[in-house]
Amino acid sequence: MSTALKSIKSLAPLLDRVLVQRIKADTKTAGGIFLPDSAVKELNEAKVLAVGPGGVDKEGKRLPMGVKAGDKVLIPQYGGSPIKVGEDEYSLFRDHDILAKINE
């Protein structure tokens, strides 16, 4: 998906959408050896950058979101809506698609 955004900060998720950025895997081993991109697996961990206000139930009441900006979460390997701004890649997921919240 090509977007004309100049900054990801100008993107505000709607309803129960969550904007995340995958956490990049280390490209260097503990011994100091650099790994090629083909050998580095994509992590399922992401940082939440922004959340929507929440979905609406049948009675019109706003449902609370399960995560908030700044949380570290576990996301599915596939899915979401990819967004690319410059060289950076982001994804939009629905709140119920987030697998877990990582507490550190």
Rank of each mutant, 00 (worst) to 15 (best):
Y78K: 15
G70D: 07
Q21L: 01
K58Q: 10
M1F: 03
P13T: 03
D88T: 15
L74Q: 13
V48Y: 01
L99P: 04
P53E: 12
F93K: 01
V40I: 15
K72P: 01
Y78C: 03
N103Y: 04
A46F: 01
A4S: 14
V18R: 04
A30E: 12
V51K: 06
T27L: 04
M1H: 08
G54Q: 08
I8V: 15
A25I: 00
K101F: 00
A39N: 08
D57H: 05
Q21C: 10
L19A: 04
I75C: 08
K84P: 00
A25C: 09
T3N: 08
V18K: 04
G66V: 01
D26Q: 12
M65P: 12
A30H: 06
K6G: 15
R62W: 00
N44A: 04
K58F: 06
S10Y: 06
L14M: 12
I33M: 13
K61S: 13
M1Y: 02
G54F: 03
R17C: 11
Q21P: 05
K58M: 08
K101P: 02
L15K: 09
S38F: 03
N103W: 00
L19V: 08
D26T: 12
S2P: 02
V56D: 07
I23V: 15
L43M: 12
Y90A: 04
S38A: 13
L63E: 12
A46M: 05
K72T: 15
V40H: 03
K58N: 10
K101C: 05
K72Q: 13
G54H: 08
L74A: 11
G54K: 09
G86C: 10
G66Y: 00
P64Y: 00
